[in-house]
């Protein structure tokens, strides 16, 4: 009996609590920065694409919604995807691609409003996915961390990288 009255009181007090409901189209709910929504491709701080077309995201994707083709840039030797296609009507926003990506290129954003009348419009090409900025990791630049040679950065010139050992010399 006492517990019943306590319940009544507790429920009554909730009359004066703030509503949890957010009136969505008029009022945007709070979006956590790490919310997993629409996928983007980011760029290095120098403005070039981060994606090196390693295919790890496509492998990690449990629903196989990512398709891409590797190619190389003639002038500096960087790898990049010739095309990069995400079928958002398949994507389950699991974030596995973001976890798998070695270059922080593929990232998930808080934008969840992916509605189209036509299913074909849910297929995003590279031009739709690629943004101008660096996304969540503003200072990270893959080609200046990796050991691979590109134009303007020779072996041993990357961050935290030693000069290559001269195997013909005996001097330390």
């Amino acid at each position: 009996m006492l517990s019943q009255i306590k319940t009544l009181w507790t429920v009554f007090v909730h009359l004066f609590k703030r509503n949890e409901t957010v009136q969505y189209p008029e009022e945007m709910p709070y979006q956590a920065p790490r919310y997993r929504g629409r996928i983007i491709l980011t760029r290095d701080p120098d403005g070039e694409e981060r994606c090196v077309a390693c295919n790890l995201c496509a492998v990690a994707c449990p629903v196989d919604c990512i398709a891409l083709q590797k190619t190389e840039k003639e002038e500096d030797g960087r790898w990049y995807p010739e095309f990069f296609r995400i079928n958002f009507s398949r994507c389950i926003m699991c974030g596995m691609c973001e976890e798998a990506c070695p270059t922080y290129a593929i990232q998930l954003t808080p934008d969840f409003e992916l509605c189209e009348f036509d299913r074909d419009n849910m297929v995003y090409e590279k031009e739709h996915l690629l943004i101008d900025g660096t996304g969540k990791y503003p200072d990270y630049s893959f080609w200046h961390v990796a050991g691979k040679t590109i134009t303007g950065k020779d072996k041993g010139e990357a961050q935290n990288e030693n000069k290559p050992e001269d195997v013909r010399s005996l001097l330390p």
């Binding site: 429920v11 949890e20 409901t21």
Partner: peptide, 8 residues
């Protein structure tokens, strides 16, 4: 009922 349950 909505108000009691923190809804609208």
């Amino acid at each position: 009922l909505g108000f009691f349950q923190d809804r609208l």
